[in-house]
Structures are given as C-alpha cells and as structure tokens.
Design a protein around this nucleic acid. Sequence first.
DNA 1: CTGTGTGAAGGCTTTCACAGCC
DNA 2: GGCTGTGAAAGCCTTCACACAG
Lengths: 209, 209
Amino acid sequence: MRVAIPKKTVYRLSVYLRCLERLAENGVQTASSHALAQAAGVKPTQLRKDLTSFGHFGTRGLGYNVVTLREKIAEVLGRTQLQPVVLVGVGHLGSALLAYKGFEKESFEIVAGFDVDVKRKRRKTYSQPILSLDKLENFVRPRKIRMGIITVPTSAAQDVANRLVAAGVNAILNFSPIVLRVPNNVVISNVNLAIELENLSYFRSLAEG
Amino acid sequence: MRVAIPKKTVYRLSVYLRCLERLAENGVQTASSHALAQAAGVKPTQLRKDLTSFGHFGTRGLGYNVVTLREKIAEVLGRTQLQPVVLVGVGHLGSALLAYKGFEKESFEIVAGFDVDVKRKRRKTYSQPILSLDKLENFVRPRKIRMGIITVPTSAAQDVANRLVAAGVNAILNFSPIVLRVPNNVVISNVNLAIELENLSYFRSLAEG
DNA sequence: CTGTGTGAAGGCTTTCACAGCC
DNA sequence: GGCTGTGAAAGCCTTCACACAG
C-alpha cells in the first residue's frame, strides 16, 4: 500500500496534473512552484508541500521539470491505464455524460449505459450500448468493472447503488440528492448541483453585504 | 451582515435541509440529532455543533421540530425567494441542465441559455429561450441576474466568465476544467467530473489494497 | 541569488465529555 | 432517562520562516 496522501492534496494533484498537461502542450519544459501554483489557483507553499507528500522532484534555484512531474503525478494517481465505468440512468444528465468526449482523454471510459426503459425516446444514438437495468450484474461482473455513475431519480438511487455494489463496483459517483448507504469498502462521491448553487448563492450574498 | 457560519457547515446545512424536507413530506414532526445526522450521513455531535452556529432550536430530551428547523435553515441559506440563473454553453451538458426540472423545487430557475451558435442542432425545444452570446449583457444586466453557469469548452471559459462578470454576475458555477480568474467579489464553484472520477479511483484502489 | 524542502506555528474543523434542561 | 448545547481537546490542513541546494 502507498504512502498516505492527505485527501485534499489528492484533489489538488488532479488539478496540478491538468495544468502540467497544458504547459507540456505549450512546450514549456520547466515551471517554478510559483508559476504552477498560479495556474492551479493555489499558493506556492501549498503546492510544494503537496508535492513533498510523495517525493522530491524539484531542482532548487530552477523549479520542476514539467514532463517528469506530470508523469510522476499521473503514476501516483493511478492514471496509467484506461478505466471502464458504467452509468445507470440515461435521462437528461446521463445522456450528456455518455456523449461527453472528454473522459477518454482523462483515462476513463463509460463503456455502457443502463436504464429501466431501454426504448425511451432519446435524441441520438450513442457510441456505447444502452442496456436494461436487469443486465447490469451480468455485464459488470465478468468485465471486473469497479466504477459506476448514478444519474437516476432519487427514488431509485439506493436500489441502483445496491445493485452496483452487488455486481462488484466499489466506487460510485452519485448525482442523486440522497445519502447512499453502502459497505465501508465502497467509496462514494456526491455531486449535487442544487447544493452547489445554494452554496454559491449564500457566499455571493455574504460578499455583496 | 449575518453571523459568520463556517464554510463546511453551510454545505451541510443544505444537506440537512433536504433531509428535513423528506421528513416533513413523510409527516414526521420531530427528529433527534441522532436521527437527522444518520439521514444526512454525519455524526450527531457535528449536526448539533452546526446548528448552534446560528441559534438554538432543539428541545432537550426531545429533539428538533422538523418544520421549524427546516424553515430556519431555509432562511439562513437565503432560500426564501426564487433566484434567476443564466447558463452559457448549450452543448450536451448545458442542454441537460436546461432540461433538468429539479432546480425550481430548489428555488433556482435557469431563465435562459446562451451559445455562440444558436442554430446548432439540438434534440428538443426548451422551456427557456436559447440566445446568442452577444445578447448576454443586455439580457443579464436589466434583470439584475447575479448567478451564472458555465458549460462551454475550456478555450472559451475565461472569456465567458469575463462577460458574465461585466454583466453584473457575481457567482459562477463552472463546469470547465480550468481555473477562472475573476475579481475578489465574485464567487466561483468548480465542478470537474473528470477530477471527481480520478479521486474516486484513487481512494477506491487504496481501499482495495 | 533563485527557488525548493520543511519544521514550527497558526487556523480551521471535528470529536469528546459532560453540564444543563425537559 | 433522554437529548441538546458547549467548552476543551484532538486532528487536520494551511501558512510562515528559513535552511539549504544549484
């Protein structure tokens, strides 16, 4: 097992990775913690501290080698190989995620969409198959898929989570506005757009006075 | 100006609010910190601490009145009136958000979508108008709209943010994978799905060993 | 002289332990 | 007895100040 990296650091590593990728594309070879931190929207000391949680990669007086650092972070984050993901709930949001082209570049691939109603009217054909929810376990288990995205209505979310876990999934990105109950070894990340808006609204009016 | 409430507490208040709404719908009148915390996925002491940051609403030996607490939290979060929001970038994700019916129940309303290409092929008609990006400022300013959602490609995101700010928006929900630079009085919240997946994947494999 | 690496300090958040009220 | 409210403690994260390397 790897060295423990603080939760928030892991998140920022993902941000740094994207900044480094942009820099590399632009042919930049070296970046100081100051430059990189600016691009990532954090303080230089924080970036340095974050990086030292898994090694020493900078050259004093110079900075960091963009390509080397990018590779190292990618390795730490386990982004070395493409990860298959299934999506359950092919409504408005689910459709949008299925059609989103950006994930592959990011080393994730949504390999199939599941829905209770396969024939439901949808705007287009997808590159992925849309299958009946009944087929979830038979699809997921033999392929050893470990990640799932839930974009079903609230009332169905817990049932879908149970099925995903039963099929062997141990990481779930949940868009439904409910707290899912899952075993301890399953990781959940909740994305709740209404709450994000509500938070924004609160801090907005605070700033406005 | 209101009493300062810790950042993370504000987020959880939104979660509690949704739990209370569900309880109220089910006719539950009173809930203990233990019951409510369970529903919200936090510890009872944390919930109590969170609530005391803006008052005392519980009855010792009994718990909290569901309806009263719900109203109080809604008031603190400023959810008393419907807030108009504009969305820029009517692609896959933007379309899904425009069509999402859940926001109104949550006191937000996306009142219009903007895009550089108004005539772009889209699957359906929306209840909101889709307007040219040129018309953004003339739409936003007179209506005193303060919140915006950015769902444009990365290359256009900073420009769109600048336009929103110029038009008077001071809170932005950003889905593009880039750090936006805005004045201090503007609040930004970033939602980056690729990073969420990457994080999930990291903690998933940690747990798996 | 520039810019990284890092112990120590500071600040924020969570958890504990228990006092206080119904 | 049951459950809230809360100071104190613990834990976590960020920032500072500066040693140290190129």
